[in-house]
Design a protein around this nucleic acid. Structure first.
Lengths: 212, 212, 212, 212
DNA sequence: GATGAATGAGAATTCATTCAT
DNA sequence: GATGAATGAATTCTCATTCAT
């Protein structure tokens, strides 16, 4: 890590990859997510990844200039999905329609999290020690929060929207984190219902569902 | 070979410590929290800790059999404080009084988190790779959630209390995590007000504050 | 923490080795015997071994999970040779033929000891602190003794064969140990003659060489 | 060890010791033999010794300038006993009287070995890495062998007495070593009988017990 | 494109010895 | 006389990265 290529240029960002190469790269990316999920980012060794991808150390460095480089790639992929997700959330109104919209959106979030959770979780680990990836992760989360804030700012007037949205993102992310870690069981649909209800009520409190 | 200490039993569990020894141990414990806060658990080197505590490697191993061992100690201390905290939360009623109680309690939580955040945050890191400490941390959090669940179960009837309390713990913990990491600014008092409002509203939704 | 390898499983037990790998492993094994001979097992540093094998620490741990692991490997190799040696000893009769057979066999033993002495000697060191290797070494020696016992039991009737064979193994082993350590000089052939004579006489005493 | 006082002057060789001091020193000496017996010389830590002697590190260095220094002391004590033992062995004649004398003497040896075995065993460990103590130990053993050689040289004419005596010392020492390690069981008296018989027969072979 | 082998800088840990009380 | 605490050099072991085939 410390001995990474200055600035970690990706070996394959330059040249074109043939089909086989692409497949190998994909395999490495996917394998790493699996391993992150099991052992966490810090504890994951390049060796674990190449074993899971059934390839070799040499090959790894054919596609990524370092472990961080691979993780950066992963982060970008996840960031993209999160961006799409953010756009999918329309304005959340205080009425039943708003609740339903929120519920639907949480369903989408949940699906994304299932795939990307390990990476998102790793951002936290990474951020703390000032890695570039950590910064990117924090940015993604901040953007996410901001977007959510925008969607609620219009309707919530007695709460600080910045605080509120961060709190909700915190809740949603961490809840899923726990859930993924197996600390929660229960029917997924119902859990999402509850989560949506809490979030919606948290935002609009007293007036929620109250028809004017 | 010489790697004797099976699984890191604390070297001081056996013998009594004199005043000086106690002070040194304390210094190491405190220093480690500082460093964890700055670099995270995994990235922290024993070397960082002993430097911060202005002592030597040898001394470190006089009091702890490993970094993990020290962390276990820290975890126990934090667990204790969390337990006290849990007891401090009385039943949360749907009315203004309940909101106020929640607000006060969040203030206490906040203070504890300020001191213990780095340790709590590290539980997440540790849990993932099946360390004993990770398990303990998860247990503490689970207990915390359970207790909160009990305090709200009586008043909330249209939510799954297990999901609800976990969601709230997730929110509260993570929000503080972000806050400690400097991702949030703003007046602490106001932030806590907002957090309390959201939490309370999230729990009691429509009926909150409504004088029946 | 990272100290993963439970009890030192050999890193190469799993994967196949190519020619180069095999050569390197052999080099390490051979180098270690040389160093053990010079400094003894306990006093030998991994550093000494890798220097003697002209390779690096990293490489060492590519093939062995620890010094103990390497030693275990060595022990197995030696045990095999000892087993072959044991089989090479036919029944030892009280007459001249028996003496000659014993003498020949001692010559073989001597050769094996020249190569394996340092390992055999180290068993003693290792046994004392209950290491697995120590146990194996003790077992090999015990087996050796037993086999010798069987070969003499038939002809010796006024001695406890268990005690007698152990005494002889003790003598033969330790004598060679001293000899290897340079505490003895003299023509090798003659020394072996003497040793054979003593051993034979020790076993058959009064009746030795007496034509019925 | 490496950082030992140049030449390791014994802190108490100069000054007189009061009764209490003498007792403490004795306790350390005795404790160390116990520990050596259990763990071997190399594996024994100063910490083990002081714990067994129920005293402290500081105290240890009040009486010995290093671990080696203590061991040197021990070696001297044992060397003295061995010297006495050597003198106790008169000429060993080829007849029954010689056998009886040998048997008696082995009994004495056995007793000494019971007390001193761990130290004697450690000489072997120590010798190999050129420690001063190792040299002393080797000398003692050599002297022992020489003396035995003198006692048999007169009567044995068809064997090289140097080789013969070394072989016998090797056997006797090692046999006791094994025996102490629990690798042998059986009635002590009978074992000594057998050992004496073998030794005597080994020396005098055909003519043993033959009334000229 | 792919791979097994090699490397070496760092990290953890031990333990004889010294020091302050 | 005795002791608990402190030290730091020496040692083992890890793992990201590079190399040769």
């Amino acid at each position: 890590m410390a001995r990474a290529n200055e600035a970690g240029s990706a070996p394959t960002r330059d040249r074109e990859l043939r089909a086989r190469g692409k497949r190998t790269m994909r395999r490495l990316l996917d394998a790493s997510v699996t391993v992150f999920a099991r052992k966490g980012f810090h504890a994951t060794r390049v060796d674990d990844i190449v074993k899971a991808a059934r390839t070799s150390h040499g090959t790894f460095y054919l596609y990524f200039s370092s472990k961080d480089d691979l993780f950066r790639e992963l982060t970008e992929e996840v960031a993209e999905q999160m961006a799409t997700l953010v756009e999918a959330l329309g304005p959340v109104s205080p009425d039943e329609a708003g609740l339903a919209a929120l519920r639907t959106w949480l369903g989408q979030f949940s699906e994304v999290y299932e795939r990307c959770g390990p990476v998102i979780g790793a951002w936290t680990e990474a951020e703390i020690d000032g890695t570039e990836v950590g910064r990117i992760g924090a940015d993604v989360l901040a953007g996410f929060t901001l977007a959510l804030g925008r969607q609620i700012a219009s309707s919530v007037d007695d709460l600080d929207p910045a605080v509120a949205s961060m709190a909700l993102v915190a809740m949603i992310e961490r809840y899923h984190y726990y859930a993924l870690g197996g600390m929660v069981e229960g029917d997924r649909g119902q859990v999402l219902d509850t989560l949506a209800a809490i979030t919606h009520a948290g935002l609009f409190g007293a007036r929620a569902g109250v028809p004017a």
